[in-house]
Amino acid sequence: MDSYDLDRFRGVFTALVTPFKSGAIDHASFDALVERQLAAGIAGLVPVGTTGEAASLSDAEADDLIRRTARSAAGRAFVVAGAGSNSSASTVDKVRRAEAAGADALLVVTPYYNKPTQAGLLRHYAMVAEATALPIMLYSVPGRCGIEIAAETCAILRERHGNIVAIKEAGGSVDRVTRIRRLCGTDFVIHSGDDALTIPFLSTGAVGVTSVVSNIAPVEMVAMVRAWHDGDWRGALALHDQIAELTDSMFLEANPGPVKAALAFAGLAGSEVRAPMAEMDPGNLQRLAEIIDRFRQNGNLFQEMR
């Protein structure tokens, strides 16, 4: 692990949406969204993850998005490409393709649907780690995958594989941060996988967040996490409170429906999603529109959207 600069994982990483237009990727909107993130001072970009509808992308589309992100972010932000699936062989292929496309690191979700045991996860991640020299961020999200990476399993993986250096923890439990740190050591990187839990996670030892809401509010998320790292806890909490309603609204329905709708309301990208996802329920859409409108008019928030 000493050969990796783990400070590169510090801060806000945006789980990028993939804009579509008439079924195809809207490259112009994607590039503009990436540039907006970089201008806001985002530390990292995560293309082709859950928020990017990775499961609905072809390999060629995923490669292109990673390549475009890496090209735009070069020297400006760390690129952690999504590279997981529910097949170990397919995951290894995705890992190699992401590395070839220019990713700086890899985000590898637990296999979904299969529900492997912890022994199965050890086998899966060993295959992944041996396929690449890039640093790997584990991704535990039991709400989507049906399984959790046990803290003990994290510790074994960290010990056996020098390039497994981090975890995106999206199980909703702050207690998990302490347990993972205790078993894996304080130099094992932890990211919050839930925007609403960013401050609680940072307070117990996480160093960053892989964020959905930063697609729409990158300036505010960067300011909040920087304030925390700078010791301005009151300022960080004030920003947390200011964006709490917006953060909650990103999950009125399954991600990325709401964040894509929010970007459309802001005139930043279209709201189109790929099947099996569907456009938001009209009632939820109206509620989201009202929230976005309030934030547009609220103090210094969303100044670049006015």
Rank of each mutant, 00 (worst) to 15 (best):
D63P: 00
I180Y: 06
A81T: 08
A24E: 15
L237I: 07
E290S: 08
L122C: 03
E304A: 14
I164E: 12
L263S: 06
I149K: 07
L33K: 02
E279R: 12
D232C: 07
V48T: 13
I164M: 12
I42W: 10
I156F: 01
L202C: 06
E35P: 03
L45A: 12
Y112V: 01
S22M: 02
E148P: 00
F78T: 01
L106D: 11
T132D: 08
L65V: 05
V46L: 15
T178N: 11
A129P: 08
R181W: 00
E253L: 06
D31P: 00
I25Q: 09
A15D: 00
Q286E: 15
A275H: 07
V17N: 02
I243M: 15
P276V: 04
I66D: 12
H191W: 15
A170R: 09
G267S: 02
F30W: 04
D93I: 03
L263Q: 03
C154I: 03
P276G: 12
N114I: 12
G41F: 14
I190G: 08
W233E: 11
A77L: 05
L252G: 03
L45C: 10
V174M: 01
L252T: 07
H124A: 06
P276I: 04
R10F: 04
E279K: 07
A105E: 10
P276R: 05
G84Q: 01
T204N: 14
E245N: 08
G185F: 06
C145M: 11
Y125C: 05
T186R: 13
E99G: 07
P276D: 10
H161E: 03
